[in-house]
Write a protein that binds this DNA or RNA. Structure first.
Lengths: 230, 230
DNA sequence: GAGTGGTCTAGACCACGTT
DNA sequence: ACGTGGTCTAGACCACTCG
């Protein structure tokens, strides 16, 4: 039993509904539980995941149903760890309208290349966001690929650096819609970050495409005066 | 017991970590379970929710920690020169899919009415945002229209209250596209705020439709822990 | 009344990290 | 060795929907 049971149940359900029409009811939790001889709580966990992924949806107390979206694309295998990343590609870019903006931020001309790494961040099987990380070629090439991954531990990086960011409304780029498992034309939030070490020049520029459901942006503030401020 | 226990646990945790520094460990699941006399599975559910919301994060088998403070403190919208408001209408609403969500937040049923005020905020003549402000009828009607305007001085209000917010990607509602002077179908960011006085019940709920160009959301953060100097 | 999902319990074992 | 989170069980009661 290398796979956790709830993953097995997810696989079972994915197969079970493959080819089914949307809005078809699936087996009830208790039924699945009996057939697979697995506790209902475990079955629920599997179904909850699939609901969050948009493969199924719950219909109140009437049952659980196949969602409208073709369940085909979804990622698949294993290791229900925490946040995982999947590097999609590394390249170097220039002469693209989208990139001009970033080149400017680095103080480059149109013809000068930028190193780029694009990766998908997942939580379990849930796609959270796509990150496009830009850096100066000399900065990137200075490091081996191992060190690159360290360099791009953004969470750690952000704690050590000064960051400015901006949120922009956007439509999901077609190339990312499958990866994030959202329909083409979906409205999303794109975050643009500029990361500097100390007062140095621009170190990294990151464009993050956030999954509209799985990666929401929230916050809070307390009354000022009682505020906890550093 | 009107609230499910796991919601109560979430509230407990939110209070418990209020003001704590990021990366501070929270109590262990078993500890919370004992203290509140609540099953560990229920505590887990609460923690999982908060992790998904980005309030906490899990650290493998080392514990669970307060997440990096959402940069909310330094969030600022582009500072307007001369903000003016134009009240579009006041009404009371119920039985609308869009409003159901708000009714729930106030703890109302579908058939119970909510007071609503919709207004357009302009900077000079530039449209910045549309605000939909929801309140309980008795709270709103308690005040004359003059006092209403005061009550809805959100900036002042926010300083005196505790606010939680969420940003959602959205498509501009057709009825607002003209007001904000953007094309139909434009991607925008919608901010949803819940405003409370002290630990009281929900006082105001505000949906803000931000103009994609005129009302950008930006912020910054400085290195944590290490002294920054200058 | 039968079936459904939503919540909840009080245990259990495991893999893993820290000490 | 101990504490942590991750998984799992076999029950339970509730509110709701539907025939």
């Amino acid at each position: 039993m290398s796979q956790p049971k709830y993953i097995q149940v997810m696989d079972f359900l994915r197969e079970d509904i493959a080819g089914r029409d949307p809005h078809t009811p699936i087996l009830s939790e208790r039924e699945i539980s009996q057939r697979l001889d697995i506790s209902r709580m475990t079955v629920r966990k599997a179904i909850e995941q699939l609901c969050r992924q948009g493969v199924l949806y719950r219909g109140g107390n009437r049952g659980t149903f196949v969602a409208r979206r073709p369940a085909s694309v979804t990622v698949s295998e294993s290791t229900p760890r925490q946040e995982r990343q999947r590097v999609l590609f590394l390249d170097s870019v220039y002469e693209s309208a989208n990139v001009r903006d970033v080149q400017k931020a680095f103080g480059l001309e149109d013809h000068q290349r930028l190193f780029r790494m694009v990766r998908l961040i997942l939580d379990d099987d849930l796609p959270l966001r796509v990150e496009e990380i830009y850096a100066l070629p000399e900065v990137a090439m200075d490091k081996g690929l191992n060190e690159l991954e360290t360099m791009f531990q953004l969470d750690a990086c952000r704690n050590a650096a000064s960051v400015t960011w901006e949120l922009r409304p956007a439509v999901i780029p077609p190339k990312y819609s499958r990866l994030l498992n959202v329909r083409q034309g979906t409205a999303v939030i794109c975050r643009r970050e500029e990361i500097r070490m100390g007062n140095g020049p621009l170190y990294l520029c990151v464009h993050t495409w956030l999954h509209p459901e799985n990666a929401r942006i929230t916050g809070s503030s307390q009354p000022q005066g009682a505020a906890t401020h550093t």
